[in-house]
Design a protein around this nucleic acid. Structure first.
Lengths: 167, 167
DNA sequence: TAAGATATGTTATATTATAACATTCTCAAA
DNA sequence: TTTGAGAATGTTATAATATAACATATCTTA
């Protein structure tokens, strides 16, 4: 496996991972998906996507806006929110409800629930896709006759490096 | 079991459940808990608690504020948010992150994660506390060396009555 | 190239939440 | 029974997040 691998699904990206590769890979995947679907990954949308992917920590919309405004005149809230809506609609990013923030999806195109472990110290979010966890939810819902439309699983805590740093 | 039972944990309250009993029971539990802890469930806090409990659907803070303002002069956002903070701090209500709204806790005083099934049609939220679900999360977190602090599990979908209503 | 659809620009405003300081209330010790 | 300290609430202002509505530009394809 590549030393400079992209974020591994279900784990926290290593401290020394090559984030440039991360972003490049994500962008490639996004472009492929959009091409397949005839969706237009415009300059603006691509840029917002890159900004969301600028780290593995979820980013707020107004944070994105501030950064976008540096390089583009007249960027306003709708500029960002519309791009985010597009990206979300195509499963390229997720919204972290408990943080009002957005993070790149590590498995775009794959059906998955969007389960996250989020470090409250460094902000890093690890997207996990635990089939057991998913199964447990499906099972319980089925038992109650509940028809699932959308799942939000966000677990806040300390990632291993931050635990080490504290002790 | 009582015909006019309060909300059963892990299920949607029956259409014909006696909601007055629901609220009364919740209020009794809250008073007990606060008494045990020496926490002051003041008039204002009690009233906000009742308003949150006015239905099994999560209620927004400004919704609460509007209702509170009808019966109390000078009610302002902090009035409501402070009461909500108190109630949340004592585990008497939960915040539904995906809705920016608040709902009464069906099992105050018990350690539990706050797992919800939320009907997107009628708004009703059923608090489940599925040990398997919880175990699945704990297990996965442990495997990754992640130290859990807070869990947010919110599943949106259609409750049985609303499914029936649609077909 | 012109028309329709899609995307973006622009202005305004809605919704949710908190900061900061003043006043009132409560409870226990003097 | 005061009184003083801490807790709770009142009050004003503002921050942070998100959307509405309409104008303009750009893309696509007939």
């Amino acid at each position: 496996m590549n030393k400079t691998m992209t974020a591994t699904k279900g784990a926290f990206p290593g401290v020394r991972h090559d984030h440039g590769d991360c972003v490049a890979g994500a962008l490639r995947a996004a472009e492929e998906l959009c091409a397949q679907r005839g969706a237009r990954l415009t300059k603006l949308r691509r840029r917002v996507f890159e900004l969301v992917w600028s780290s593995h920590a979820p980013v707020g919309a107004y944070d994105l806006l501030r950064r976008l405004a540096r390089e583009r005149d007249g960027a306003a809230p709708p500029t960002v929110y519309r791009a985010l809506d597009f990206l979300r609609g195509h499963g390229l990013i997720h919204r972290i409800e408990s943080l009002n923030a957005f993070v790149g999806c590590c498995a775009p195109g794959l059906a998955h629930a969007g389960q996250f472990l989020i470090c409250s110290a460094c902000g890093t979010a690890a997207e996990i896709d635990d089939p057991r966890l998913d199964a447990a939810i499906e099972k319980r819902a089925k038992a109650l006759g509940f028809a699932i439309q959308r799942k939000t699983i966000e677990v806040e805590g300390l990632c291993p490096p931050c635990q080490a740093r504290r002790s």
